[in-house]
Design a binder for these strands. Sequence first.
RNA 1: UGCCGAAUAGUAUAACGGUAGUACGACAGACUCUGACUCUGUUUGUCUUGGUUCGAAUCCAGGUUCGGCAACCA
Length: 555
Amino acid sequence: MSEERSLNFIEQIIEEDIAAGTHGGRVLTRFPPEPNGYLHIGHAKSICLNFSLAQKYGGKTNLRFDDTNPVKEDVEYVDSIKEDIKWLGFEWAQELYASDYFEQLYQFAVQLIEKDLAYVDEATPEQIAAAKGSPTVPGTPTPARSRSIADNLDLFARMRKGEFKDGEKVLRAKGDLASPNMHLRDPLMYRIKHAHHHRTGDAWCIYPMYDFAHGQSDSIEQITHSICTLEFIPHRPLYDWFIAQLGIFPSHQYEFARLNMSYTIMSKRKLIQLVQEGHVRGWDDPRMPTISGLRRRGFTPASVRMFCERIGVQKRDNLIDFSLLEFCIREELNKTAPRVMAVLDPVKVVITNYPADKVEILQAENNPEEENSGTREVPFSNTLYIEREDFMEVPAKKFFRLGPGLAVRLKYAYVVQCETFEKDASGNITTIFCRYLPESKSGNDTSGLSVKGTIHWVSAAHAHQAEVRLYDRLFSVAEPGNEEGDFKSFLNPDSLQVVENALIEPALTKARAGDRFQFLRKGYFTVDVDSSPEKLVFNRIVTLKDTWAKETKKS
RNA sequence: UGCCGAAUAGUAUAACGGUAGUACGACAGACUCUGACUCUGUUUGUCUUGGUUCGAAUCCAGGUUCGGCAACCA
């Protein structure tokens, strides 16, 4: 059923591996987050990639927390990461932690010391950096480099025992100080941190560095395709080197370009800043590009997966249009979201020839895109509210809505024609007076006339109040991360607009948190968890496409 | 001026020596009891210079541009 799609470069590699019988055709991937922040849409790309690759080729995917830096990591993040992956619709084969391998990694380090491929150094970070040279100048050995194997073994054991303070010693690989690849110039393998680890507690005071943990963890798990982002390309020779020197399972690393999206940022460091400095309401603020933010905003897992599928996988840097994400959610919600009427900016309409005490119950279809979605009842009376922007005192050309003398259809109801209107002292329209055409009722319209516009409305006596939160892009420039100056100065001041007293049709009061609707002509909305029995709170997921708004902007 | 990547419409992404296609966006129109949806159409592209070849986005060489790399972060 799925449309024909050419293979991305990683799929090509896997198919070649399977054809060549590498690892017996087995495919095992892993998703390796560090539990130091919430997952964002960029991680979703990686998650979708790793899990769908395994699904496609009959393999599995491990979830492995890369928790080698206790000072930055926390169980709060572990929990949120697991929740987000599940929400996206993926199941991991095993839940693992790099910290599960601390003892094994320690033994690996000892092996390398014994092979004279690692040594304990007491130089300061500044001295080590200086001794590494520069890309064009070879490094020089620090005095410790010539230490004996026995001494190194002893010192490393004492590092583990806690005989040294933080930063006093490190374990370094004996690489190539002249390598053009800086990562090979005696990289650090272990550092001392007397810190409490979220899983191992105080069992350790030395912790492996990424380079000495990641590849070996992959190898221990027998990961066949270790997929990461482009910035790890220069690490690959080191990844391979450790595995080769240790003689362990040859996992391989492949790199793809991380996701960048316009009008937002993907840097964990910056996202955490927005949260901690209160520029947003939290990690799950609906404006955040985090998975929890998208979830609260009302995005569906399927729409996020579709987005990740459509953006593709390549090695070139990219900047994905925010509009593609919007397209993906509209695409799904158009088919699935029930239609309802809600007036965000109400103005009163009185139908002068409709009996004041009469109430009609009209039938409204729930979703024209879905055959069996049924209908619901909507009350109609002589006093209604419509959207303020659907009335113009002096109608513009091609304005197919209400204005003096103009006629529109009230959705599911009657055609009404505006006769007159009232204004208050400051010139705001307060009431619009219309006559309705009794023979124009939806379903059996015998009036014979056709009006160009149809608008939504609610009956004043039957409408309920609700809070509606209208979200817009978080930043007002396309690449806030690449602009000069503080990225926070590019925050969009209008990214959240709260409508305290929107009016919703009575059928909507049954809505529960997480339900999604299309507010006719306004957009897609979801019920926020802030809702109470007394007052519903809606988040706008995305607007509908609005050709008229575009038209008015032109002039 | 070291090493490593990458360059195809506005943005993404295909074409794997043989007609440069698709999606999103934009624009124009049709339809419409949502100015939505749907449908139709239009516009715009192989970084550059050489070379190989009957034929090059694709192979080769040089150049240009962009990105990454010298954390006791991952």
